[in-house]
Amino acid sequence: MEMQIHVEGGDISLLDSSSGGIFEKSLPCFGCGIGWFSFLLGFVFPPLWYYATVLYFGNYYLKDPRERPGLAASAIAALICSVIVLVSLVAVFC
């Protein structure tokens, strides 16, 4: 059992570190989270970026704040992909 000492304003108390918190649980998708998993697989299957974008704007990261960077990266990748597709279509049809 591991204990930590907490000192605040002259008061000393012991904190038990065995009380599991929200970050003790591993993230889904092999431990990297839905956002990063979607970001990486999005290079093969781009609709996953749009799925992660919907999760990002749906505030999915409020369940676990560790998901936010991966979901944001997927949203940015979806935006860049959309711009590239739009510019390509304009170049082909105009």
Rank of each mutant, 00 (worst) to 15 (best):
G9Y: 06
S82L: 12
E8H: 09
K63D: 11
A77F: 13
K63H: 07
S88D: 01
T53E: 04
L41Q: 07
G58Y: 00
F23E: 14
R66P: 11
S38R: 02
L14D: 00
F30T: 01
I5W: 06
A91M: 11
G21T: 03
H6M: 07
C81Y: 15
L55M: 14
C32V: 12
P65I: 03
V85Y: 14
F30S: 08
Y51R: 11
C32A: 06
S17N: 13
R68I: 04
P69Q: 00
Q4F: 09
I84N: 05
C32E: 06
E2S: 09
S17W: 02
I84F: 07
R66L: 12
D11Y: 12
L71S: 07
L55I: 11
Y56F: 11
I80A: 13
L86E: 09
G42Q: 05
L71F: 00
A78T: 10
L14V: 03
Y51H: 02
V54W: 13
F57W: 14
F30H: 08
F43L: 01
E67H: 04
E2W: 04
G33Q: 06
A91T: 12
K63Q: 10
V85M: 15
D64C: 01
C94I: 13
D64I: 01
Q4R: 15
T53G: 08
C32L: 08
S38T: 03
T53V: 00
A77R: 13
F45D: 05
V90T: 12
P47D: 10
D64S: 03
S88L: 03
F43A: 01
I34M: 11
S13Y: 08
Y61V: 01
F37R: 08
I12W: 06
Y61E: 08
G42L: 03
G35T: 07
F43G: 02
G9L: 07
L40I: 08
V54Y: 13
G35V: 06
L40T: 00
L48M: 15
I22M: 10
S38H: 06
E67R: 03
S74G: 11
Y51V: 15
I76F: 15
G31Y: 04
V87W: 02
S38P: 02
L89Y: 09
L89R: 12
I34G: 04
D11C: 12
P46K: 03
L86H: 10
F37V: 04
I5N: 11
L89E: 09
W49P: 00
S13G: 12
I80D: 05
C94Y: 12
C29F: 00
L15T: 11
F93Q: 06
G10I: 05
S88M: 03
L71H: 02
T53H: 05
S19D: 12
C81A: 13
G31F: 04
S19N: 12
M3A: 13
M3G: 07
M3L: 14
I80H: 08
E2C: 02
C32S: 05
P28S: 14
P65S: 08
G10F: 02
P65L: 04
